[in-house]
Computed example of a mutant assay.
Amino acid sequence: MAMMNSVATNTHHPLHFYVTLPSAVIPHFNKWISQTKLRTAGLTVKPHPSKVPQKRPHYAKIYIKDIFPNLKGSFVYLEPDVIVQGDISELLSTPIISSYFGAFTKDCFSSSKHLTLTHQYYSSHLNLLHPAIRALKIRPNTCIPNTGVFVSEMHLWANASHQMQELISSSTINDPIYSSMGDEGEAAVLAVIYGHMVPLPHVWHLPDLGLKAQVSYSKHFVQSAKLLHWNGHFKPWSRKAAFSDVWLHYYLADPSGKYRPARISL
């Protein structure tokens, strides 16, 4: 809800949100939206398909075309631990070369490279000995992209999605496509977009804010970023997180009181 509000607040262009959620929470989500200023924004809400495992919503990015078959043209993918401080239309206009699948930020080349990143290379996420992965000739020490924020064209992503699903199908218990730090969904995305992505402008993605409880950025530096991303364990709605005040600024309270950030005392 905070992510959507930040997007809507900071653009003057028409918006349409395509949201996918577990089917059980959709009625509450729709009621929540209807009682906030976001009720005037364009909105399509669809349940996660059965292919998305429970408690692994990040798999949904693989099935965007299946979930929203009428979606065409350019789109911005955002996970919920994001706050957008710039005009999203600028990010949407990021040029994508037709032979690539999208624009991503590489984690170990991000502004937060001074942090201790223990899973920043392909070798930590992929089983490079799996036949289908080995055929891609991925260099083990290649920096992984952050897949929680990206820009793509729907026809390009549909092609990538098909390849991702084939990789997932080739994964077995005895010979998985993922390594110690990953899972099948993330491994499939990382493998398919390897060598087929353009860089996302760094001002449009300040990641790793959730890797530690405190991050040594200046307030001015965080304010100047157009998109903040709390990927990692420390989320801005939890009790300890860096710059959570920015997230709380955009949070829209649940009228029913069912959901409440841990940082807001009862």
Rank of each mutant, 00 (worst) to 15 (best):
29 F>L: 03
29 F>T: 04
31 K>C: 12
31 K>S: 15
33 I>V: 13
33 I>K: 07
34 S>D: 15
36 T>E: 08
36 T>S: 14
36 T>Q: 09
37 K>C: 09
38 L>D: 11
38 L>C: 10
38 L>E: 11
39 R>V: 14
41 A>T: 11
42 G>Y: 06
42 G>S: 08
42 G>D: 08
43 L>C: 01
44 T>M: 06
44 T>H: 06
44 T>W: 09
44 T>F: 10
46 K>P: 00
47 P>S: 06
47 P>C: 06
47 P>R: 09
49 P>N: 14
49 P>V: 15
49 P>C: 15
49 P>T: 15
51 K>V: 01
52 V>L: 06
52 V>N: 02
53 P>Q: 08
55 K>M: 07
55 K>P: 00
56 R>Y: 07
57 P>D: 10
57 P>K: 05
58 H>M: 03
58 H>C: 00
59 Y>V: 03
59 Y>L: 01
60 A>F: 09
60 A>Q: 09
60 A>I: 08
61 K>A: 10
61 K>Y: 06
61 K>M: 11
61 K>I: 02
62 I>L: 07
63 Y>S: 06
63 Y>R: 04
64 I>L: 11
65 K>G: 00
67 I>Q: 11
67 I>A: 07
68 F>T: 01
69 P>L: 06
70 N>Q: 12
71 L>C: 02
73 G>C: 05
75 F>M: 07
75 F>V: 03
75 F>I: 02
75 F>G: 02
76 V>Y: 01
76 V>G: 00
76 V>F: 01
76 V>S: 01
77 Y>P: 02
78 L>K: 04
79 E>S: 01
79 E>H: 00
79 E>L: 00
79 E>A: 00
80 P>W: 11
81 D>H: 14
82 V>I: 15
82 V>E: 11
83 I>W: 10
83 I>F: 05
84 V>N: 07
84 V>T: 08
85 Q>I: 04
86 G>L: 04
86 G>V: 02
87 D>K: 10
88 I>Q: 01
88 I>Y: 04
89 S>H: 15
89 S>L: 07
90 E>S: 08
91 L>E: 09
92 L>H: 11
93 S>T: 06
94 T>P: 08
95 P>S: 07
95 P>W: 05
96 I>G: 02
96 I>Q: 05
97 I>S: 08
97 I>W: 03
97 I>G: 00
97 I>T: 10
98 S>Q: 14
99 S>I: 07
99 S>N: 13
99 S>T: 15
99 S>Q: 13
99 S>H: 12
101 F>C: 02
101 F>I: 00
102 G>C: 03
103 A>F: 06
103 A>M: 09
103 A>V: 03
104 F>L: 10
105 T>E: 11
106 K>R: 13
106 K>L: 09
108 C>V: 10
108 C>T: 13
108 C>W: 12
109 F>G: 13
109 F>P: 04
110 S>E: 08
110 S>T: 10
114 H>Y: 15
114 H>W: 14
114 H>V: 10
115 L>T: 04
115 L>K: 08
115 L>P: 05
116 T>A: 14
116 T>S: 13
117 L>M: 13
117 L>C: 09
118 T>R: 13
119 H>C: 07
119 H>S: 14
120 Q>F: 09
122 Y>G: 07
122 Y>S: 10
123 S>G: 02
123 S>D: 13
123 S>T: 12
124 S>A: 12
125 H>V: 00
125 H>N: 01
125 H>A: 00
